[in-house]
């Protein structure tokens, strides 16, 4: 059933600029770093002399995290906007579909869109590095870690934003929470490791990005389950 509900969801968002966002996000991040490295090539190349690729990937990652956090809030809001704008929650839920399927389909689409976005980011980063003349021997493991693990570590926020966007008809609230979280995350590097907004940066005291990603995955699942339980029981207008 989930596959069919997802197919219906794709139809609902067909005319929305969701794929545009999924492409412009990574393209913007890579483009900005291209400008950054292009304008201060000599300075940056000297700074990252020992590890050119590492420097580039680190810079891209630093900018990709806020883009990811803001982007997921926007996409989550767009996924729920059709029902809110046309007051169609009753109609959707009157169809022979379970609330579990509706909520899960929206969450799954968010995951797919962001996964595509992260793939584009990895490809774009590799292309940018090659274009800057860093050679073709890019560190694949490092690149994949920096591209995909922030996505896993950001799962609690995806679950949270989907839940808020679906539950609240006033989309200014989830979007403001998303914006505030993004700005918090920019300052989170100094905070302690339990702080969820720090996880997408993959920095922790064990120096192991998998710890951050694992924490994100676990918290994401918990929040998704909590949101689902609430959505399944609530009265819709």
């Amino acid at each position: 059933m989930i596959a069919r509900v997802m197919a219906a969801e794709w139809l609902k968002i067909r005319k929305k600029p969701i794929w545009f966002l999924a492409v412009i996000g990574p393209a913007g991040v890579v483009g900005l770093q291209a400008a950054n490295f292009g304008l201060r090539y000599d300075y940056l190349v000297k700074q990252y002399e020992d590890d050119l690729w590492g420097g580039l990937i680190g810079n891209v990652h630093y900018l990709a995290v806020p883009a990811l956090l803001l982007g997921l809030a926007l996409v989550a809001s767009m996924l729920a906007s059709l029902e809110h704008q046309t007051n169609a929650w009753k109609q959707t839920l009157a169809l022979p579909v379970t609330r579990f399927a509706v909520f899960t389909a929206k969450f799954a689409i968010l995951l797919v869109v962001l996964a595509v976005s992260c793939t584009l980011l990895a490809v774009g980063t590799a292309a940018l590095g090659a274009g800057l003349g860093f050679g073709y021997a890019f560190p694949a493991g490092e690149l994949l870690t920096a591209s995909y693990l922030p996505f896993v570590a950001a799962m609690p926020f995806m679950a949270l934003q989907i839940w808020m966007s679906v539950t609240l008809s006033n989309q200014a609230v989830p979007l403001t929470v998303g914006i505030a979280g993004t700005i918090l995350s920019l300052y989170s590097v100094r905070m302690s490791d339990w702080f969820p907004w720090k996880w997408p940066y993959l920095i922790n005291e064990w120096n192991d990005p998998l710890v951050s990603a694992g924490a994100g995955l676990a918290a994401g699942f918990l929040l998704y389950a909590a949101g689902l339980v609430h959505f399944a029981r609530r009265d819709v207008k």
């Binding site: 600029p17 966002l21 913007g28 900018l63 926007l74 809001s77 906007s81 704008q85 200014a172 979007l175």
Partner: peptide, 16 residues
């Protein structure tokens, strides 16, 4: 008419 679309534009230009 969408709420998120103008915000998306805003976010795209604010992040840089």
């Amino acid at each position: 008419s969408s709420f998120a679309a103008p915000l998306a534009l805003n976010v795209i230009f604010t992040l840089p």
